[in-house]
Design a protein around this nucleic acid. Structure first.
Lengths: 113, 113
DNA sequence: CATAGTGCTATAGATTGTCAAGCATTTCAC
DNA sequence: GTGAAATGCTTGACAATCTATAGCACTATG
């Protein structure tokens, strides 16, 4: 997966794309821009991501310093995921996508089967 | 994949994310921002994407009106892929990612080997 | 005339993501 | 106080997605 990165030496853009391109990552960040969420709450808000994938994504995002996890209580389980500064900064990216999407993806009907 | 979209009615951002999140898509667009490319040329510039996936991505991008394909000659084979206006507009997105990446992904060493 | 190049496609295999169920515990409705 | 629902996940089997490798038809270069 990062084989090509070797050729490119190190390219932050290339790396950034690789991070953001994983399924659900941008959806998760977008949801968290509205404020911190618990696990199931986040799952519902994102819509469609199953817990296994969600766990994995959150772990990676945490390792990258994009999301921070806070355990309020173990029993009953209470956790919350929030964006760090790096995570908040992704708002620019989401906004760019938003702008682009509104302008160039106007109709979902296009592929009307 | 689009199951959640049903709940969200229709959300351009959601859709846009789904398009851009597919592996190699953003890399392909980024490469094409430097100008049109032939198939193998593009493949090499992107670095790491195999022809089967590349073909599939290019077909989808073409259907979405992001990329345009021009066949200059069948034999010897000469084709070129270029960004349409919608594709060029993705430069804003790539730039946002670039800015973010440079600021928040400074070291690749983090996940040392 | 062999080698390398063009733009792909095909088949099989590896990686990644999904579905469904379930655990331990508390809280809320009844 | 008993049953249902919720919390934050984990597990294991399965499906979708992506990759590796090889190859085709053909030309241009040496």
């Amino acid at each position: 997966m990062t084989r090509a990165a070797e050729d490119h030496a190190f390219c932050p853009v290339y790396e950034a794309i690789n991070v953001l391109q994983e399924k659900w990552t941008l959806h998760i960040v977008r949801t968290l821009l509205d404020g911190p969420r618990g696990f199931n709450e986040l799952s519902r808000a994102v819509g469609g991501c199953n817990p296994a994938t969600l766990t994995q994504r959150l772990e990676r995002l945490e390792r990258l310093g994009i999301v921070s996890k806070t355990i309020h209580s173990t029993m009953p389980p209470r956790t919350s995921y929030a964006l760090t500064e790096a995570g908040q900064a992704l708002q620019q990216v989401i906004e760019a996508i938003d702008t682009w999407g509104r302008k160039y993806l106007p109709e979902p009907v296009a592929a009307a089967h």
